[in-house]
Write a protein that binds this DNA or RNA. Structure first.
Length: 270
DNA sequence: AATCTCGCCTGAAGGC
DNA sequence: TGCCTTCAGGCGAGAT
């Protein structure tokens, strides 16, 4: 499942192929993604891609008149291919460039999205409501502490709340809390300032490290099979239910929090 | 206002 | 082998 690092690595992988290139056509084969792909995405046709940005897990393909917004959902993959590359199952959207190259969006589960943000319209509410980027100075442990004072939700749900900080998905929430030694079930308001200050640093480290690793293991986005994939990262707790904790050798536990699988070590996380 | 729950999807994995 | 069931999950929307 693409988390922020995967989206950022995708951005880095596709950007050089897109920036400065005019869009010839936007081909929509399957409109029914998470939301219906709007007709307005065709407004990008004839315009030049000026930038490829990321905000949270959304990618913005900027033109002078607006941006095509892509979200990879759970199973979304981006490839840069020649336009004559045969379409495979779940190739839903193509952004075709005038040079014969095309950005191809494949998404089996269709939890992803392709939207249009007009440059002259207010930013759509969904995007405007997003909290700070985790890798900027707008986010740190002080913010976590301050926002958590009256929150009774589990700390894991709290750090996965997009209004608190964006881009912390299930895997990295689990991993960060393990490293910080915080029990994911603990009420957000019960977590100490000291723990939050550590957690803020750890979230940044975990995400940065994953991006670096993704950069080094980055598959070739221009190959037919060159999906970004999900880099093989070393996971300490995620998916390790019943296995031994790497620190204390206790059995890793799992519970459901916020309808998501949650893994932790009872001994190491208090 | 804060929190909880639902639903969109398909493919992989496991059971029989 | 093959069918059926279960699970995974980002995240907005609606309910509580």
């Amino acid at each position: 499942m693409p988390e922020l690092p995967e989206v950022e690595v995708s951005r880095l992988g596709i950007s050089p192929h897109l920036i400065g290139q005019p869009i010839k056509q936007v081909v929509v084969r399957h409109r029914q993604l998470r939301w219906l792909v709007p007709e307005d995405v065709h407004l990008a046709e004839g315009l030049t891609i000026e930038n490829v940005r990321r905000r949270a897990k959304y990618l913005f393909i900027d033109t002078a008149k607006g941006s095509i917004i892509l979200h990879l959902g759970m199973s979304g993959k981006l490839r840069v291919v020649n336009i004559d590359t045969p379409v495979i199952k779940h190739d839903h959207v193509d952004i075709v460039l005038t040079n014969g190259v095309c950005l191809r969006f494949n998404d089996a589960r269709r939890f992803g999205a392709c939207l249009w943000q007009d440059a002259n319209s207010p930013e759509m509410a969904m995007i405007a409501a997003l909290g700070p980027e985790p890798l900027t100075d707008d986010f740190d442990g002080h913010r976590l502490y301050d926002l958590s004072r009256n929150k009774s939700v589990a700390v894991k749900n709290f750090i996965m709340d997009n209004k608190v900080v964006v881009g912390v998905g299930n895997i990295y929430a689990n991993e960060s809390l393990f490293i910080a030694g915080i029990d994911p079930r603990k009420a957000a308001k019960q977590v100490s300032k000291k723990s939050y200050l550590a957690l803020g640093v750890i979230i940044k480290q975990v995400l940065r490290k994953a991006i670096e690793q993704g950069g080094t293991t980055l598959k070739d986005f221009t190959q037919a099979d060159g999906s970004p994939g999900y880099f093989a990262q070393h996971l300490r707790v995620y998916g390790r239910k019943g296995k031994a904790c790497e620190v204390c050798e206790c059995e890793i536990q799992s519970v459901t929090l916020g309808q998501r699988n949650t893994f932790f070590c009872e001994q190491c996380q208090k």
